[in-house]
Design a binder for these strands. Sequence first.
DNA 1: GTGTTGACCACAG
DNA 2: GCTGTGGCCAACA
Length: 106
Amino acid sequence: MINKKNTTKFQEKIYKILKKVPSGKVTTYGILAKQAGVPKASRAVGNALNVNPYAPDVPCHRVVRSDGTIGGFASGTKNKTRILKTEGILIKNGKVIDFNNFLYKF
DNA sequence: GTGTTGACCACAG
DNA sequence: GCTGTGGCCAACA
């Protein structure tokens, strides 16, 4: 269980799901929202990750857009790309290579 | 309760 | 390939 902070139920749901994603894999905002029970809340998911009070616990850098593009990151997309590379995910020109292959299907 | 904003998504041109 | 538009949801003023 996660320590309670200034978070809403929706956010906690997102974090809980995101924690299920193993290293070397990535997920998308849309899928994450779908697992949360609201498939169309992709924007809300991004909003929740932006707050991300559980930064080290929740690998928000493993979340990318449906096209495989990086999308955004609170610490900068440049840093996010670097982390993903460290995870073993190849990134080119701001997009994930073989994104579908690295995509974690719940 | 209303309006604005955002790390989005899909479609049309 | 990119831009514009409409739509979805949650959080905040």
